[in-house]
Computed example of a mutant assay.
Amino acid sequence: MKPCQNCQAVIDEYILDKQLEPLRELTVDDFNVCGNCATVVPDACVECGGAVYVPRDSNGTPDYCPACRSDLIERTGHDPGWHLDTASS
């Protein structure tokens, strides 16, 4: 069992898996944080309408879930980052 990189508590994989359930294709193995330190916001992804994971160093709620961000990188070859580009034309 790994310690949480944020608070050093032992990661309870069952609790974290339940918390991460709304995130497509992610499991507890994709995170080094415990359930208390992981922040998941339901229905926030602008692409799929699913949940997003808020990275520890983020100042706001991301617009893309990790799966949609990965899909966009594969499709376009460009990393959109966590937030939707709001630049006007």
Rank of each mutant, 00 (worst) to 15 (best):
N6K: 10
N6H: 07
N6R: 09
C7Y: 09
C7S: 03
A9P: 01
V10G: 00
V10Y: 03
I11N: 00
I11Q: 00
D12A: 06
D12E: 13
E13V: 03
E13H: 00
E13S: 02
E13W: 00
E13Y: 00
E13I: 01
Y14C: 09
I15W: 05
L16S: 02
L16K: 03
L16E: 04
L16Y: 01
D17I: 02
K18G: 05
K18D: 07
K18N: 09
Q19L: 10
L20A: 02
L20E: 02
L20W: 01
E21Y: 08
P22W: 03
P22M: 03
L23T: 10
R24C: 07
E25H: 11
E25Y: 13
L26W: 02
L26H: 05
T27W: 01
T27Y: 00
V28I: 04
V28L: 02
V28Y: 01
D29Y: 08
D29V: 07
D29G: 06
D30E: 11
D30S: 10
F31T: 13
F31S: 13
N32K: 07
V33I: 13
V33Q: 08
V33D: 07
C34E: 10
C34L: 12
G35D: 13
G35H: 12
C37I: 09
C37W: 10
A38I: 11
T39W: 11
V40I: 14
V41M: 03
V41K: 08
V41I: 13
P42M: 08
P42R: 07
P42L: 06
D43Y: 15
D43P: 10
A44Y: 01
A44V: 02
C45E: 13
V46W: 00
V46P: 00
V46E: 01
C48E: 14
C48Y: 09
G49N: 11
G49C: 13
G50R: 15
G50M: 14
G50V: 15
G50C: 15
G50E: 15
G50N: 14
A51H: 12
A51Q: 09
V52S: 15
V52P: 14
Y53H: 14
Y53E: 11
Y53A: 14
Y53V: 13
Y53F: 14
Y53G: 06
